[in-house]
Design a protein around this nucleic acid. Structure first.
Lengths: 252, 252
DNA sequence: ACCGCCTGCTTGTATAGACAAGTGAGGCCA
DNA sequence: TGGCCTCACTTGTCTATACAAGCAGGCGGT
């Protein structure tokens, strides 16, 4: 049984523009279309791989790939032995672009400059040590940098770094490379955690960002790991009227 | 050639705890470990499927699945005819949990209540029509709802809805079901766009949220699509001291 | 009536073989 | 020398087959 032999008879049920799409994509479209239209409500059972194999005329491995990908995209849930089902309440997570501030600025066609207010080793307090999973009192790197877009401050970067993950951190020239860029290269990140808040800046922050203490700020707290080593904990503070986070998420 | 026959000779190169992991996962670990350690710098060529097949003793389809998944996770890039390479600058997107506010509140063990300030059909202005991809002047649904957590306002939800995607929107009882919940069921979302900002609330917003106009607020703008139909455009405004977005992202 | 086993169906994984399509380098020819 | 062609190698896909593992309902025994 080859897909091509029976696709002629089964074409009515497939998408109209199955022109040159690979077979597994046609199967994905076939399923997704029905889920989106509501033909199969949440929790409903989806035809088994063998049924789809017979119905659509593709091999089981092809159908399997389609169902597996739709599952990893959150549309379906599968349990071995029981079957495949339309997922209840799709996870509504959203992807945000959290990027290197310097790249962002340059992509807007503007000039990026940064000023280093602090770059040193410290003995860690309990807070920072806790965030990085280190012993309190162990050595920790600390930097405080302000990033400017065409001369206007757009980010205050208050960052702690695990020396074990980036031993050379203190020797970098952070006017030509951002800590972000350096850390990504030094310790490719495999995990990240973010918390986003709106805050009122304290006096010191307001001064460094050249804003009034009444201006709202966007605070992005970021922790990262490489493998199972914690890498960094950063507080990134942006003036509310000069910065926004953007993200687009698509699953199909 | 079966994986089991040659895995004995090749085990030294595989992870120590390949205990009961499926073969494709072992291959993924093998590659990822080297990428994380920096053995293969960014842009470096990764062994071809055939080489890995010979080296690791698994079939090409198994190796192919591993490489395909690592590619979709952003660790590798592949180009047909040329080869597989360690991805330059992994996309640093972060996943945020953007969820139903009512669920969030209830999960914290608190009480959710909402007050409906507006729920009606309007003729769309150019802004809303543009966001939803409709003709200016066409009919559009508009709701304004405040959500309370244990009696304190935590979100002002200003929402426009495409009537074509959710014709029954105006007939819902939004005290017992949130617009979010209803829309997710009525039109399963396949695409979403978010913009996050810190803002100062206008007088009306401050009044509805029972905060002073000086308090910073987190503004989340959200647009969604179902298939190729635009569904909704919402401005979700949260008092800065009562709300935060959280997200964890892991790729391995 | 209830418990336990068995059996058929389901998903999950692994393999070998095949062909399509794109890339890039090296060689040939003008 | 420069342009074109060929060919080896790569990824991308598809299929048929096989076995493992988990679930659920039916059947029989107690």
């Amino acid at each position: 049984m080859t897909g091509l032999e029976t696709i002629g008879t089964g074409r009515m049920t497939l998408s109209q523009d199955d022109n040159n799409l690979p077979a597994y994509q046609q199967v994905k479209d076939y399923i997704l279309k029905r889920v989106l239209k509501g033909d199969w409500p949440e929790g409903e059972r989806v035809p088994s791989e063998n049924e789809l194999t017979r119905t659509l005329g593709f091999s089981r491995m092809t159908v399997n790939r389609a169902l597996r990908e739709l599952t990893s995209e959150g549309w379906l849930t599968r349990t071995q032995g029981a079957g495949t089902f339309v997922a209840e309440s799709r996870p509504q997570s959203a992807v945000l672009d959290i990027r290197n501030i310097a790249d962002e600025i340059r992509e807007r066609g503007h000039e990026h400059r940064s000023e280093i207010y602090m770059l040193r080793a410290e003995t860690s307090g309990s807070t920072e040590a806790g965030f990085l999973g280190l012993e309190e009192g162990s050595e920790i790197f600390h930097s405080l940098i302000v990033h400017y877009e065409d001369g206007r401050p757009v980010q205050l970067e208050d960052r702690y770094v695990n020396p074990a993950a980036a031993p050379d951190y203190l020797n970098q020239d952070f006017r030509s490379i951002t800590p972000y860029e350096y850390l990504v290269k030094a310790a490719p990140l495999s995990e990240a955690e973010h918390v986003i808040q709106a805050i009122q800046p304290d006096a010191e922050t307001a001064r460094l960002l050249s804003i009034t203490p009444q201006s709202p700020c966007l605070l992005l707290k970021r922790r990262t790991w490489s493998g199972d080593k914690s890498v960094t904990f950063a507080r990134l503070i942006h003036p509310g009227d000069r910065y926004q986070l953007w993200g687009r998420f698509s699953s199909s």
